[in-house]
Simulated assay, not measured.
Amino acid sequence: MKILVAEDDAQTADYLRRSLIAEGHSVDVVDDGRDALTYCLYNRCDLMVLDRMLPGMDGMAVLKALRAGRNTLPVIFLTAMADVDARIEGLKEGGDDYLTKPFHFAELSARIGAIARRPVAAEARTCLRVSDLELDLLRRTAERQGQVVDLQPKEFAVLEVLMRNAGHIVTKTMLLEQVWGLSFDPGTTVVETHISRLRTKIDKPFDAKLIHTSRNFGYSIHAPR
């Protein structure tokens, strides 16, 4: 399995990395919540071991942002927050398991194994389509009516969020969280700028417009009606 470890304690992170690699896993490590969210948006991985008390963006906010974007990546919390309410919150918000520190690696390994053995409900989507627009998540390419659309990484990420939520309004806050890893509005026009660029590339050269604005709410993408 390819596992992301999001842990800001260097000693614990190194221990997890070495132990998981010894069991045959591929492991990447980040020490900041925003980096964890960005990693999950731009990279394939099979599971994340997530600390709740991370700098930049706490682990619960990372999980909520993932689930808001319909990202079903399995997440095991590994945290010192051991009270019952914290456990319940972590599981109710979409965590797959919850293990508290101090911990035994053998138990974490067993829980990872249990998740790995779960039957896959459906094949993960690697290609998103809305009308005649296609987004290939593996090749990181976009095409409309067979024509390649050249997108910058952030433009691709914004379009991916819109297409994963096709037919539904995506708020500016959701885009800030899922694309830029921000849990607050920095007061800039970064979202509006990227939507404008996408319209220039996705809509302007074609007759039918796919990207729509819901004033005071957000943006959506859907086939012409």
Rank of each mutant, 00 (worst) to 15 (best):
E7F: 08
Q11H: 08
L16I: 09
R17F: 04
R17D: 08
L20Y: 14
L20F: 12
G24Y: 05
H25G: 00
S26R: 04
V27P: 01
L37Q: 14
L41V: 13
D46N: 04
V49L: 10
D51E: 03
R52M: 06
R52D: 04
G56W: 15
M60D: 09
V62N: 08
K64S: 02
R67P: 00
R67S: 00
L73D: 07
P74E: 10
T79H: 03
A80G: 14
D83M: 13
D85I: 11
D85E: 15
E89M: 03
D97G: 07
F103A: 03
F103C: 05
E107Q: 05
R118L: 07
A121W: 02
A121R: 05
A122E: 14
A122C: 15
A124V: 13
A124R: 15
C127L: 13
R129F: 05
V130H: 10
D136A: 03
R139T: 04
R140L: 03
A142H: 02
Q147L: 05
E155M: 02
E155Y: 01
E160W: 03
V161C: 07
M163K: 15
M163T: 12
R164T: 08
M174N: 03
L175N: 01
G181Y: 00
F184D: 01
T189Q: 15
I195P: 06
R199I: 12
T200L: 13
I202Q: 03
D203I: 00
F206I: 12
F206W: 14
A208S: 09
K209F: 14
T213W: 08
R215Q: 06
